[in-house]
Computed example of a mutant assay.
Amino acid sequence: MIIKILGSGCMNCKKLYENAKAAVEETGVEAEIVKVEDFKEIMKYGVMRTPAIVINEKVKAFGKVSTVSEIKTFIEDAR
C-alpha cells in the first residue's frame, strides 16, 4: 500500500504525515508513506487545498488534517 501526503510541508502537512504514520502502526498494514511537495504533482490529483491524503492513488481527503481514526478507516477501505 502506498500512502501519499500532498502538501507544501507546512505544519498541517507534517501533522497529517504523523497521523498517517500512527495509523499504519496501529493497523499493522505494510505501507510506504510518501510526502509529495511538488505542486505540479499535487495538481495531477485535482487537489486544490492541502494537506491531502492519497491511498493507492485515490484521494481520500483534502483541505484538512485527517485524524488517526479517519486514516485507519481509509486504510481498511483500501485493503
Rank of each mutant, 00 (worst) to 15 (best):
I3K: 08
I3D: 07
K4D: 11
I5Q: 05
L6A: 08
G7R: 11
S8L: 14
C10S: 15
C10K: 04
C10T: 14
N12P: 08
C13I: 01
C13K: 06
K14H: 10
K15I: 12
K15C: 00
L16T: 06
Y17T: 04
A20Q: 07
K21N: 12
A22Y: 02
A22T: 14
A23E: 10
V24W: 10
E25V: 13
E26N: 15
G28A: 13
V29P: 04
I33H: 03
V34M: 11
K35Y: 04
K35G: 00
V36N: 05
V36E: 12
E37F: 12
D38R: 07
D38N: 15
D38M: 05
F39N: 12
I42R: 10
I42Y: 12
M43Q: 08
K44E: 15
Y45T: 01
Y45N: 03
G46L: 09
V47A: 03
R49N: 15
R49D: 09
R49W: 09
T50C: 11
T50L: 08
P51W: 03
A52C: 07
I53K: 01
I55V: 08
N56M: 12
N56G: 08
E57P: 01
V59P: 04
V59G: 06
V59Q: 10
V59M: 10
K60N: 09
A61Q: 04
F62D: 11
G63N: 05
G63I: 01
K64G: 03
K64Q: 12
S66Q: 08
T67N: 03
T67I: 04
V68P: 01
V68Y: 05
E70D: 13
T73N: 15
T73E: 15
T73P: 00
F74R: 06
I75M: 09
E76Y: 11
E76A: 14
E76K: 15
E76V: 10
D77V: 05
D77R: 13
D77P: 00
A78M: 11
A78H: 04
A78I: 05
